[in-house]
Amino acid sequence: MADHSIYGKVVLIAGGAKNLGGLIARDLAAHGAKAIAIHYNSAASKADADATVASVRAAGAQAIAIQANLTTAGAVEKLFKEAVATVGRPDIAINTVGKVLKKPFAEISEAEYDEMSDVNAKSAFFFLKEAGRHVNDNGKICTLVTSLLGAFTPFYAAYAGTKAPVEHFTRAAAKEFGARGISVTAVGPGPMDTPFFYGQEGADAVAYHKTAAALSPRSKTGLTDIEDVVPFIRHLVSDGWWITGQTILINGGYTTK
C-alpha cells in the first residue's frame, strides 16, 4: 500500500518564497518532508526565498531556492529539471503562482490580459504538464486558484477568468495521471490577509471583504488567514489523496459554487 505521509518526501513549491507558499514550505518541513525546492520569481523575492530556505533547513529538511519566470514552457521545464537534479524527483508539487488585477472590463488592455493569462493559466498548464512527467508514482499535485471562481462580481474578469481554466486542467490531469496513483487538486482561498490582496483593494473594499465570509467574525483579520489554508493543502498532498480532480474553495463561507 502506498505511503501517503509527508515524512521523507521531496517537495517542489512554485511561488514558495513568501506568504502562503512560504508557510506551506515551513509546514511541510515541520511535518517531516525530506527536501523542498522553493521557486521564486525574481530578484525582488530572493531575500524571502533565502529566509524560507533557512527555516526549512532549520526544521531538518534539505532546501534549495530556484529563480524562474514561469510564463514560458521552457522555464517550467527547466525548473523541474533543476529541482530533480538537486533534491530528487518530487513526490509533491504545489503551484501557488498567481497575479491579481482588479479593473473594469472596459479598461483592461491587451497587454494586461496577456500577462494575466501567462501568469495564471499558461504557467499552471505547463506546471501540471511537467509535474505529470516528473512527479513520482503515488505523488500529489496541487494548484492555487481563487474563490472568485464561485463569485458573481465585477472588476475581476481578467483574474478569475484566467484562473478558471485551471479547473479543467486539474480534471484532465487527474484523469490522465490517476493510473499512476497521482492525485491532482486545486484550492481556491478567499481573500487572504497578504500583500497580494491589499495591493489591489481600496479601503472600502477591504472593509467589505473583512465582513463578507460567514466565519469572518471568528477570523483574526476577517479575511482568509494563510494559517487556516495550509492544513487543508497538507491534507490534500498526504492522507487526502483520494480527493482528486476537484477544485475546493477554502474561504470561511465567503462564497460557494
Rank of each mutant, 00 (worst) to 15 (best):
D3R: 02
G16L: 06
A17E: 06
G22C: 05
G22W: 02
L23I: 03
R26T: 11
L28F: 09
L28V: 02
A33W: 04
A33C: 03
A37Q: 07
S45E: 15
D50Y: 07
L70K: 09
T72N: 01
A75E: 07
V76I: 10
V76Q: 01
K81W: 01
V87A: 04
G88D: 07
I92G: 03
I94N: 03
N95G: 00
V100W: 10
V100R: 14
K103D: 01
F105K: 00
S109I: 06
E110R: 13
A111H: 03
E115L: 09
A124D: 13
K129A: 01
R133H: 02
V135M: 08
D137V: 02
K140E: 13
C142N: 12
L149N: 08
G150C: 05
A157G: 09
K163M: 12
P165W: 07
V166C: 06
E167C: 14
T170Q: 08
K175V: 13
F177T: 01
F177K: 03
D193A: 08
P195S: 04
E201I: 05
A203H: 11
D204G: 04
A205E: 14
A205T: 15
Y208V: 08
K220T: 06
T221S: 15
L223P: 00
T224S: 09
I250A: 12
N251Y: 08
